[in-house]
Nucleic acid binder design. Sequence first.
DNA 1: ACCGGGATGTTCT
DNA 2: GAACATCCCGGTG
Length: 214
Amino acid sequence: MPPPAADAAATAPARPLPRAFYGRDPRHAAPELLNKVLAVGGVAGRIVEVEAYAGADDPASHAHRGPTARNATMFGPPGHLYVYRSYGLHWCANAVFGPAGTGLAVLVRALAPLAGLATMAERRRAARQPRDLCRGPGRLAQALGLTGDHDGADLVTGVGGVVVLDDGVAPPPSPGVSARIGVTRAADRPWRWYVPGERCVSAVRSSIGPVPCR
DNA sequence: ACCGGGATGTTCT
DNA sequence: GAACATCCCGGTG
């Protein structure tokens, strides 16, 4: 007897997203990453907020000016993790998209914590409540223990210690959309998507500008 | 609640 | 030298 649909989703065996998922333009594919699971060992969270970066065509992208030592992973095959240092202090994680050489990527901006919350809390002493553990790109990298050592990890095979899983929860049928947060160039492009109503989407300072965020 | 400043690696002008 | 896909803490209302 098949279980009800909601239970089927919750109990489906988690399997990695296939390589082909990443081989597309993130301006269309990025919202499909919502509600997938990002896992590093036993620590994991559900992706609730993402931003697309469109390679050479996108002045806000690290790939805009071509390959460098830092962004080399962006120009490799899709389905790998690009980790970079932000403002000299924090780490941020992207999934590489598109055909190899295009520099397309999706920044993971927030997770709803799923597993390993005690470990996350040890790494994120400043977090005052569980919803703050992975609320923001620098915070989620810290909570998952992601650093430059994870740059290049294969999200499909798990080689490198990081994997993106589909556990049967569908993306939101109507994701929230806004401009990207914290970018100065190409600030008008509506390439941020989030799970509507989700409390774990990253905080936005009102001085930055009006961004729909609940 | 809102705001402002500081920390600081990599890239670019 | 300056900018930057950030976060945290302490000030003020």
